[in-house]
Design a protein around this nucleic acid. Sequence first.
DNA 1: AATTGTGAATTCCTTCACAGCC
DNA 2: GGCTGTGAAGGAATTCACAATT
Lengths: 235, 235
Amino acid sequence: MKREKISELTTNRLSVYLRCLNELASAGIKTVSSQELAEQFNLNSAQIRKDLGYFGEFGVRGTGYYIEDLRADLTKILGLDKPHRVGIVGAGRLGTALANYNGLDKSNFTVVALFDNDETKVGGRTGGGIPIFDVHKITKVVRDQNIDVAVIAVPARAAQRVLNQVMTAGVKAVLNFAPAPLKARLGVKVKTVDLTTSLESLSYFLAQPQSKRITKARRDATRLEEAIENTGRRL
Amino acid sequence: MKREKISELTTNRLSVYLRCLNELASAGIKTVSSQELAEQFNLNSAQIRKDLGYFGEFGVRGTGYYIEDLRADLTKILGLDKPHRVGIVGAGRLGTALANYNGLDKSNFTVVALFDNDETKVGGRTGGGIPIFDVHKITKVVRDQNIDVAVIAVPARAAQRVLNQVMTAGVKAVLNFAPAPLKARLGVKVKTVDLTTSLESLSYFLAQPQSKRITKARRDATRLEEAIENTGRRL
DNA sequence: AATTGTGAATTCCTTCACAGCC
DNA sequence: GGCTGTGAAGGAATTCACAATT
């Protein structure tokens, strides 16, 4: 196993590969080639081999990858063999929707607590039965409940304060939904999901004249058409 | 204005700059330099100037950018001067949470319809009063309501089918929350927000030995420490 | 024959560094 | 003097292309 540093683009893709392998496994399929995987995601097959190559040699030349084995390897690499305990700060609509999101348990994530500053919510539970604590209790609950991942689902103006609190509580991994640029301490990883930015980026795309909207898919298609044309003409 | 192709990284950042400018404007500030903006986001100031430079010359040398002007320019560039009408497919917890999300209206997005296949929901309205239609009515409602952006908030197994439906209805911009690799037609832009992948990527980070967790912030800090040390030593 | 693993080539993105301007 | 705009340099990510392997 090499020890270069791995980009987030790579780890994101590993997660996507793993999901696909899980599906292939439950369909009873035994092996898969990088080419077949690549087609699922419109990626280049070398991309997949490179991504895996950072961590070892998992494939068999001439055959591809044994799905069960690669699945186990990726699960280990991504740290999904150990359970993760998630606390969600902000018990509003988004926070509670996330708390009830099924599909996290497959990845060994369990939402164990929500936090809010609204006294009418504190002491209650979500529809799914997850307790809602006072936001001032973060440090204690993080310790008691062994929370290692925090989700920030509060308004932007409160986000940095909440981040500071969860960092103080010792949480090292944070998924942030607040549209705010957060400053994290060293050793703390914050991933921001920004809905407004995603939509505004789509808006930019819509604002381009149709003819200028050359997407990756379009470029690939063009290349393919050229390839076909070239082949047709013979060379 | 140049006519190179603009990367999504750039458009995402433009959206973030715009949000910040809006805040600065409401704080009554008149001008801002690329350096000041960069500090907000831990970016390099040249990055910001480059991003803006793709679209024109908006700054004033020696002064920086006039916030009101740049705000208007970015709003135009991102296509946010025209309203966008959003339809959300999937009136589950996530879909309804998104429908009620305030903060989209600031960007000129209005959620005008939800769609679901659950007959007990169809015909009803969300808490905020947005009507829920049968998913089979997508084409008609998209046309009647002038929907130009779709949000997919359905289970993964239904996502490609839903995408096909909204593409057929003529929608060219889609924000997808389903954890599924979707194939879009040419000229249709799909942005996927994948919560599981985000969390699994955080899990990878947590699985690294503490000493190996060299984040960008960490590298910057190291560089800074070196710079200070060098200065201290005099050269 | 098929497919991996990987250096080399390429493409894309970021940062530097400085001329030009206010 | 301070700050923009940008060509050039540097760095990162992707893709090519092929030797190695089963």
